[in-house]
Amino acid sequence: MSEPDPRPTTLDDLAALNAELAALAKARMPLEPELRRLARQLSPGAGSLATRLANRIERGSSLIDALDAEGDQLPEVYRAVVEAGIASGDPAGALEEMARSTRRLSNLQRTTSAALLVPITVIILASLLLALLLTGVFSNIAWIAPETLTPYAKFADNPWLIKTLTIVVPVLAIVIPLVWWWRSRRATSLAAPRWSLLGWIPGARALHRLSASGTMAEVLRMTTAAGVPLDRSLRIAAGAVGHRGYRKAALELADQVAAGGVPGDSDDHPGRSPLDRLPPLVQVALRYSGRRPLMTASLDRARRSYQARADLLQTSLNDLVPAVLTVGVAGTVVAAYCIGMMWPYTEMLHTLADSLWQ
């Protein structure tokens, strides 16, 4: 059976498919026929991905192999989370955690995209109005206050400046946000090397850190509860966490545990040991590594705490980001435009007042 042409998988596609896969895994339903059914109900992007996965599973591939075949269309961290779920015997839990993290970033990306409309409009209007004032006003009234207005009149005689204001700036103000929107909405923006696509958004890094902390706590909880050795659990969590700092610390701690060490026992330099570079609540749980039930319960509480904090932050950012972009970008452009235009205008009025008084 021919596969549909691959199209970029978006964050929304991944979140939707995640939720459905989690439900299928929890119900222990066969994936191949259910994925084909879901492909007709999901969005085109998610449906295309579901069909490709169903075709590979029908040919005998496992879910992990089917995901690996997507290559760069899916972030490595996503495949690692699914592998962690399968290793723990609870793929539904891992998929649900990834769905929550993906949905948070997707909502933030959509909120930011909508909030950018105001700054884009202000930048375009300010650029066009500045070109209009230079060519239609200041060039004709420079004789009123020559010392102040003559430089503005010279700007009006510069064709490159006028073309920049009327063509280049408006085009860039539209194209750059469009390119960012197109790239940041793709599922690959979850990958750490491409985090800069979303990292500039106010609060996005904190949201990403909380989501990564929740994912790490959940993966460690699932794998340790299933009896996976702690060093192996840490390596699985390192691949699934999607945070470079946490990933490096988890791998270093896994090497320490594999060599016979105990988390927290060799912290000669507090703040620099691998354990101290992990999320705080995960640190607390891992210090009980010798008492597996207590560690598992602590990881579960850490997961729920990080999830709640991430959800609260994401709700706050939905209100904060539009305000920050409007005030920070649009407000700065308006202030600069007003200052730049009002100064020559007041100087012109001052010159006229002096001449009338004389």
Rank of each mutant, 00 (worst) to 15 (best):
R36A: 10
P279G: 05
I57S: 05
A238Y: 09
S266E: 11
I167T: 13
N18S: 15
R292F: 02
R205M: 01
D255N: 14
L197F: 06
A23Y: 04
V81Q: 13
P6A: 06
G203Q: 05
E252K: 15
L234H: 07
M341F: 02
A335E: 02
S305F: 10
Y288E: 14
S233F: 03
T121Q: 07
S289V: 08
A302K: 04
G290C: 04
L130I: 06
R205D: 11
V327P: 15
L278S: 07
D276I: 02
V329N: 11
P4Y: 05
W180I: 02
L95R: 13
H208L: 05
P229F: 00
E70G: 03
Q358D: 03
T9N: 09
L312W: 10
A217L: 02
R110F: 07
P177W: 15
S127Q: 05
P151H: 10
A94K: 07
M98R: 14
E218S: 07
N318Y: 13
A249L: 04
R287V: 11
R103G: 10
V324H: 06
T51K: 02
I64T: 15
G45K: 06
P170F: 05
L178G: 14
A204M: 07
P44D: 11
E147R: 15
E3G: 15
R194N: 13
P279N: 13
Q41A: 06
G271M: 13
A92N: 07
P344S: 13
L67N: 08
S273Y: 14
D68H: 12
L281E: 12
A115V: 01
R79E: 13
R221C: 08
W180C: 00
G85C: 10
M348L: 06
V169T: 10
A237D: 03
T164I: 11
R103P: 12
S61P: 02
E147W: 09
L95A: 15
D90H: 08
R56Q: 06
M341E: 06
A258V: 05
L132H: 02
E97R: 13
V179T: 04
L128F: 15
S273F: 08
F138Y: 15
P4M: 00
E347S: 03
D267A: 01
A191H: 12
L130S: 10
S305L: 00
T135V: 06
L299H: 13
T224E: 04
N55P: 01
L128G: 02
L275C: 03
Y78R: 08
Y246D: 11
L165N: 07
R205P: 05
S2K: 09
A323T: 13
V122H: 03
L356P: 10
K154G: 07
T164V: 12
A217F: 04
A153Y: 14
Y345G: 00
